[in-house]
């Protein structure tokens, strides 16, 4: 991951934390923010991350698997997404 960031130093980075629907909404929201922040801190310490990074916790607001599913079915909802995007200066 750190190598990928170093490969594209011009890319803007956003780290998004997500959670499944099990548990309290506020708790999942806080946990997703803390997890996204933990990934950010690790990348900041172990890579040449110079550009500002956007850290967002979405909680259980953006599921990509069935939010009514079981724990196994909601495995994709428990995730951290690191989004790389280059900004075009038009």
């Amino acid at each position: 991951m750190a190598a990928l960031i170093e490969k594209y130093p011009q890319a803007q980075i956003s780290i998004e934390g997500h959670a499944d629907t099990f548990g309290d909404d506020a708790y999942n929201q806080t946990l997703s923010e803390q997890r996204a922040q933990a990934v950010h801190d690790f990348l900041r310490q172990n890579s040449s991350l110079a550009t500002p990074v956007q850290v967002i916790g979405y909680g259980e607001q953006r599921p990509i698997a069935n939010p009514q599913g079981s724990i196994e079915e909601q495995q994709l909802n428990r995730r951290v997404e690191i989004r790389l995007r280059t900004v075009t200066s038009d």
């Binding site: 990928l4 959670a19 990934v39 994709l76 951290v80 997404e81 989004r83 790389l84 995007r85």
Partner: peptide
């Protein structure tokens, strides 16, 4: 990277935490 969505790297919480 130039696309509006960009490149999304999806990591599992079970692996990370």
């Amino acid at each position: 990277l130039a696309s509006p969505e960009g490149v999304v790297i999806r990591l599992s919480n079970e692996v990370l935490f």
